[in-house]
Structure formats: C-alpha cells, structure tokens
C-alpha cells in the first residue's frame, strides 16, 4: 500500500457501505427521527415566515421597525442559541424545533416580502380602477404573485433544514435519537466509517427535501409557460 491510510483516518467506500448495512436498523430509526424533525421544522418555519412577511407587508411601519430584527435573528449562532434554548425549554423537541424555525423562516419571509412588493403595476392599476378592496388586492394579486418568490425561499430553507436538524440533535443531548446524535456518538468512538455513513444519510435526506420543494412548486405554480415541448402541444 502506497499511502497506508488507516480506516480511522479515511475509510474506504466499501467500509462505509458495510458499516451502514450492519447498522441499518439503528440508522433507519435515527433517519426517521431526523426526517420527522426536519419536516415539522420546515413546515413550522414556512408558516412563521409567511405570517411574518404578510404582517410586515400589510402594516408598513412594522416593516421599517422590525426588518433589522429579522436580520438579527440570523446573526446569533446556533451553537450559542442551542444550549440557551435547552436551559429555557428543557431537553424535549421544543428547543430543536425553535432552532429549525429560526433557520427556515428567514429565507421564506425575506423572499415573500420581496414578492409581495413586486406585483405587476398594470394589474395593481386595474384593481384600483375597478375599485377592488385591499383584501382582494392581497388575495388576488399580491399573494399569488409572491408564490414564485416563496418557492425560491423555500428551496434555500429546504437545503439547510437537514443540516440544521443535525446541529440541533448534536446539541440537544436529551433525547437519544436522530442522525445528529448517532454522528456525535460514533465520532467520539473514532468509528469514521459510521461517521461517513451518517454523512451519506444527511446528504440523501437534504436532496430529498430539496426535490420535495421542487415538486411542490411544480404542482402549485401551473400558470407559467414551461419550456417542455410536449406541454405546449398538449395545450393547443
């Protein structure tokens, strides 16, 4: 062997595969826990993001006053906030979810906020001329127009949600579940093959989340012209 790389430095792909197979039962329960946590976190974060953006949009003084706080919420590092949340809320799922909501709501809120202000001027003018109410303007114009923006924010949130869930699990020692917990355990035991195994799980889950958002976007936004030729033919 020319390089003499030990398994505890860099395990061969085959070692990782074997380890994952051996640990598959345990790994599966941890994956399920992390997946569930990330899913709930993303859903809550999106809901909070939409609520925040809509509130700031509808009450312009709020936008001026609270926008700096929005940025501030992203400036506190998770590793500082995590332990504090555990002190305040205990070792349950609550502090983990709060962390995930903090991570996910920001890109969603920010992109919707841009989208809500971008609604086409001539449609805005039209609604004004026919005397549509503020609520109708929101429902028929501003919100639908912001949906494409919502999804680009959601893609960012979905990309980060799994890694953030791992950090939350890594920090929140209480409940002994999740890939983050497994990762920490194996790292301490110098079982690098298992560490790489958990990285594989994290990457696969992250991709899964990302494509779930892409799929949802395709299902929700059906009014845009698509480049696929077969679609064009079907419509004529």
């Amino acid at each position: 062997m020319a390089f003499a790389i030990e398994e505890y430095t860099l395990p061969a792909p085959s070692d990782i595969a074997v380890k994952m197979y051996e640990d598959s039962a345990v790994l599966w329960t941890h994956v399920q826990a992390t997946f569930g946590l990330a899913l709930v976190g993303l859903a809550l974060g999106t809901a909070v993001g939409i609520a925040v953006a809509v509130l700031l949009h509808i009450v312009p003084p709020f936008k001026t006053a609270l926008s700096p706080l929005l940025v501030l919420s992203q400036n506190v590092p998770l590793i500082a906030l995590g332990p504090l949340l555990i002190i305040w809320f205990g070792f349950g799922t609550t502090p983990k979810l709060i962390l995930l909501v903090l991570v996910c709501f920001f890109p969603v809120a920010l992109s919707i906020l841009v989208g809500l202000g971008q609604a086409e001027p001539h449609l805005r003018e039209y609604l004004g001329m026919i005397g549509a109410s503020r609520w109708e303007r929101f429902k028929r114009l501003e919100f639908p127009a912001s949906l494409t923006y919502l999804f680009s924010g959601l893609r960012i949130a979905a990309t980060y949600v799994v890694s953030s869930a791992i950090v939350a699990e890594w920090l929140g020692a209480g409940a002994n579940t999740g890939i983050g917990f497994y990762l920490k355990l194996k790292f301490s035991g110098f079982q690098q093959a298992a560490v790489f195994g958990s990285i594989v799980c994290i990457v696969v889950m992250s991709l899964l989340f990302f494509y779930m958002v892409v799929l949802a976007e395709r299902l929700v936004i059906r009014w845009r012209p698509r480049p696929e030729p077969e679609w064009k033919e079907a419509s004529s």
Binding site: H122, E125, Y126, G128, I130, R140, P144, I221
Partner: peptide, 25 residues
C-alpha cells in the same frame, strides 16, 4: 372608487387564474 368598469390597454388578465376565473373573480 368602484363606480365604473374598466378595460386597460394591456389586457391585465391575472396569469394565475384561468380565463373563466379571471372573468368570474
């Protein structure tokens, strides 16, 4: 507001509403 009907230069149809829904809404 709300006393006239209006047709602008650009059709101003809402892209996320189907044709019938544009009229209906």
């Amino acid at each position: 507001k709300g006393l006239i009907s209006y047709m602008p230069q650009q059709a101003a149809l809402f892209p996320w509403l189907k044709v019938e829904d544009n009229i209906r809404f």
